[in-house]
Simulated assay, not measured.
Amino acid sequence: MAVEQTLIVVKPDGFRRSLTGRILARFEEKGFSIKNLRHYNFTKDKAQEFYSVHKEKPFFNDLVSFISSGPVVACILEGNNAVSTTRLMIGVTKSFEAAPGTIRGDFGLGFTDNIIHASDSPESFIKESRVIFG
């Protein structure tokens, strides 16, 4: 098992619904360590940088608009196989298709408003965490 770091972001819908503590607790219970934690407000420019990989996709503007619509909580997690394990724990992007027991399956309401973001690779973690943690 490889010890890795990854980024999660509790999105504005999760923050508004006061789910941040419950979500972070799941990762701690799994055995991840919280290495950095930040309450953050995305500007439009930072949101565009964060989601730049999706720039040519039709939902890009919706992503930017939603992630910058309110406060988020960003967290760097560390643990065994952090990237792949975290992705399994959060569930598929469309919350209505996510399995019960996953974060999105239990709390998410839609496609953009799906409670949480998690880096999908070690390379994405580096890029995305630099946007938020500088």
Rank of each mutant, 00 (worst) to 15 (best):
M1A: 14
M1V: 15
A2P: 11
A2F: 07
L7T: 01
L7I: 10
I8N: 03
I8A: 04
K11L: 00
P12V: 01
D13E: 14
R16E: 10
L19T: 02
R22V: 03
L24A: 01
A25W: 08
R26T: 06
R26D: 06
R26Q: 09
F27A: 04
F27T: 09
E28G: 04
E28Q: 13
E29R: 12
K30D: 06
K30L: 05
K30S: 10
G31F: 02
S33P: 02
K35P: 03
N36M: 11
N36E: 13
L37D: 03
H39M: 14
Y40Q: 05
Y40N: 09
Y40G: 11
N41V: 13
F42P: 10
F42A: 00
K44L: 09
K44C: 08
K44P: 02
D45N: 07
D45Q: 07
K46D: 15
Q48E: 15
S52D: 13
K55C: 09
K55N: 14
E56W: 04
K57G: 12
F60P: 08
N61Y: 05
L63M: 14
S65H: 14
F66G: 10
F66A: 00
F66Y: 12
I67F: 00
I67C: 00
S68G: 14
S69N: 02
V72E: 02
C75T: 14
E78W: 13
G79F: 11
N81G: 14
A82P: 13
A82D: 14
A82S: 13
V83G: 01
T85R: 08
T86C: 10
I90G: 01
V92L: 03
V92R: 02
K94M: 09
F96T: 15
A99L: 12
G101I: 13
G101M: 05
G101K: 06
T102R: 05
R104L: 09
R104S: 04
R104Y: 02
G105N: 11
F107C: 00
L109M: 13
L109S: 14
G110I: 07
F111P: 06
T112W: 04
D113M: 04
D113A: 10
D113E: 15
H117G: 07
H117K: 02
S119Q: 08
D120Q: 04
E123R: 14
S124F: 08
K127G: 08
E128F: 08
R130E: 13
V131Y: 09
F133M: 05
